[in-house]
């Protein structure tokens, strides 16, 4: 029973990460009908930029070297305990989210926008190209090896390892952080899309791009925004992933990327709440399967879930089945 609870908590953690990444896929798909294959690289870039940011923020001498010596008073606080650590994490999220979001907008502008009227395979191939390019850029210009996600002295960024014990199961600080943050961000995004003017413009664009344009929505700006928010959330997931598993590598995005897309499909692609639900569901399924069936085949199980969902219910759990328009 303890093992079951432990695996479920692992699953929810994993699910939070999948949900964050899945939102990026689902937003873009909802508007452009494009599988943004390069989205998994946003997750990867987030992991790297986050690592750099955390290193600079936690290490005064490194900050001095890169000309950010004035951060020193803040650094003392960042290194002083859990609150400081969380604040450092928030700063890191903002910095990496913004940078990766800009990368996302650049890919949209140069790789996808020129292809909006092209046959549907063209932007997909372009996206695969971007993905290959970014992976190899990191491999060549950053490192081909696995980089440890740790402070200069080799210790973890997380000050306290175990947050609390729940029914005899130890829940780690990282798990609590991931679950709380992902749910907070998901709710925030949901409110943003449902309540604000920009959110309404986004929903309108997803429903009918041309009609939204005629109603005065600046479609290009809405698409740009989707390509900012998605990668920014993906970057947060990438940072969490790095901290949770303790390392980053140039190809770390591929498998989680495909699985997050699976999550988006399970929930019904184009549907934000569906992506969230799908993310948590897939995380829990995968974690339980890994614990009770086979660890080596956990990816296989996730992919089988993808194939079964697509074949049996291509619209997903919350999506409506749409017939191809002629």
């Amino acid at each position: 029973m303890n093992y079951f609870i432990e695996q479920t908590i692992n699953g929810i953690t994993l699910g939070g990460l999948y949900a964050l990444v899945a939102l990026g896929y689902t937003m873009v798909y909802g508007i452009l009908m494009l599988i943004n294959f390069a989205h998994s690289e946003m997750f990867m870039l987030g992991g790297y930029i986050g690592l750099l940011s955390l290193k600079v923020l936690s290490d005064p001498s490194l900050a001095e070297d890169v000309g950010l010596g004035f951060l020193e008073p803040a650094q003392a606080f960042f290194n002083s305990g859990t609150i400081g650590f969380i604040l450092m994490l928030v700063v890191t999220f903002l910095v990496s989210g913004a940078l990766v979001g800009v990368v996302g907008m650049i890919t949209e502008r140069f790789a996808y926008r020129p292809l909006r009227k092209a046959p549907r395979l063209a932007p997909l191939i372009s996206a695969i190209g971007i993905s290959i390019f970014l992976q190899n850029a990191v491999l060549l210009w950053v490192s081909s090896k696995q980089l440890p996600y740790s402070r200069a002295d080799g210790t973890s960024f997380v000050p306290v390892k175990t947050a609390f014990t729940f029914m005899g199961v130890e829940v780690s600080t990282m798990q609590v952080l991931i679950i709380v943050t992902s749910i907070t961000l998901l709710l925030a995004l949901d409110t943003f899309i449902a309540r604000t003017r920009v959110g309404r413009a986004m929903r309108a664009t997803a429903q009918d791009r041309d009609a939204a344009g005629l109603m005065g929505v600046d479609v290009n700006r809405v698409i740009m925004l989707a390509f900012f928010i998605g990668p920014a959330l993906g970057a947060v997931a990438g940072i969490f992933n790095g901290m949770y598993y303790g390392s980053v590598k140039y190809n770390m995005g591929f498998i989680p990327g495909v699985k997050s897309f699976t999550a988006a499909v399970i929930g019904g692609i184009g549907n934000l709440r569906g992506a969230m639900l799908g993310g948590f569901l897939l995380g829990i399924i995968e974690s339980l399967a890994s614990g009770f069936i086979s660890h080596a085949y956990r990816d296989v199980i996730a992919f089988i879930v993808l194939i079964v969902v697509l074949v049996v219910r291509p619209g997903g759990l919350l999506g409506e089945s749409v017939t191809e328009k002629v």
């Binding site: 549907r120 997909l124 194939i307 697509l310």
Partner: peptide
């Protein structure tokens, strides 16, 4: 399945074969 779904399914299948 639609074209882009097919791409992802075949990708997943390729991985299933390799992992197996």
């Amino acid at each position: 399945l639609r074209g882009d779904y097919l791409a992802i399914v075949t990708l997943g299948f390729g991985e299933i074969v390799r992992i197996s």
